[in-house]
Amino acid sequence: MFDQNIEGAELFALPFGDIVPFFSVYTATLAAFVVVFILISAFDRPERQLNIVFGGDAYYAKEIKESDTRFSRFMAIACGCATLGAVVTGDVFNFTLFAVLVGITNIAIVASAGNRHVLNAAFQYGIVAMIATVPLFGSAAIILATTGTLSIWTLAGMGAVPLLAKALLILGVMGEGIAPLYIGKAEIIRAQGAPFVLMIHFSSLLLFLRVTEIVLVI
């Protein structure tokens, strides 16, 4: 397992039947970053926003109460926990479940803004995320049918996973982690709870990094 160049040294492995939870230097580094961002989401305070009137010198501050961002904070923490599960799991099926959960929490973070344009973006992303579950679970089904296992530890270095399954897994993660394409607009950055939007970008990045490792290892 740990003769794969991408993993680095073995830090922890716990044989538990077919599923072997493990930590390598790579996955432990990803997990550490996730924990840091979960703590940031838990203790960060809402930012003070300034609205500027173009064509003049007028500007005014918009005060955001912590109670207004309670739901955004909760979903950002939930998104961080789902991302943590995705980067530390040793099972392909569990990875797909956590990836879907990341997509669901991302939708909730976007939708919590309450702006009409932002809600429209959340709706579009929700459709993409729902469609992405098909290749995600399809990939897990193909891997199980062809190899008889979903354990990354067992599959590592075997070369038995079909290329189609790997392609579907990447496609599914692209669908779940495509949120930045829909929230990269002024409305969501200026909406209340803007600090928690960072978790959307971060979770998407970590999903891509973990699926890259999985595809290269299995």
Rank of each mutant, 00 (worst) to 15 (best):
residue 150 L to K: 07
residue 97 L to H: 02
residue 3 D to W: 13
residue 27 T to E: 04
residue 163 L to R: 14
residue 92 V to N: 05
residue 59 Y to K: 13
residue 139 S to A: 15
residue 11 L to Y: 02
residue 109 I to H: 10
residue 156 A to E: 06
residue 59 Y to S: 06
residue 145 A to L: 04
residue 8 G to K: 04
residue 118 V to W: 10
residue 99 A to L: 02
residue 40 I to S: 04
residue 52 I to Y: 12
residue 142 I to G: 13
residue 177 G to S: 15
residue 103 G to Q: 05
residue 108 A to K: 03
residue 207 L to D: 00
residue 41 S to N: 01
residue 177 G to T: 08
residue 128 V to I: 13
residue 141 A to L: 05
residue 214 I to W: 02
residue 72 S to M: 09
residue 203 S to E: 07
residue 218 I to F: 13
residue 30 L to N: 05
residue 68 D to R: 03
residue 153 W to N: 05
residue 180 P to I: 06
residue 42 A to I: 07
residue 83 T to G: 03
residue 191 A to D: 04
residue 65 K to E: 13
residue 173 V to N: 09
residue 144 L to C: 07
residue 74 F to H: 06
residue 83 T to Q: 08
residue 38 I to H: 04
residue 38 I to E: 03
residue 59 Y to A: 05
residue 104 I to K: 00
residue 184 G to N: 11
residue 118 V to Y: 10
residue 71 F to R: 12
residue 127 I to R: 11
residue 160 A to K: 09
residue 44 D to E: 14
residue 45 R to W: 08
residue 111 A to V: 09
residue 159 G to R: 12
residue 7 E to V: 08
residue 59 Y to R: 14
residue 7 E to A: 14
residue 48 R to T: 10
residue 113 A to E: 06
residue 74 F to N: 05
residue 32 A to Q: 06
residue 5 N to Q: 11
residue 22 F to G: 02
residue 128 V to M: 13
residue 16 F to Q: 15
residue 89 T to E: 01
residue 2 F to A: 12
residue 195 P to H: 02
residue 169 L to C: 02
residue 100 V to L: 04
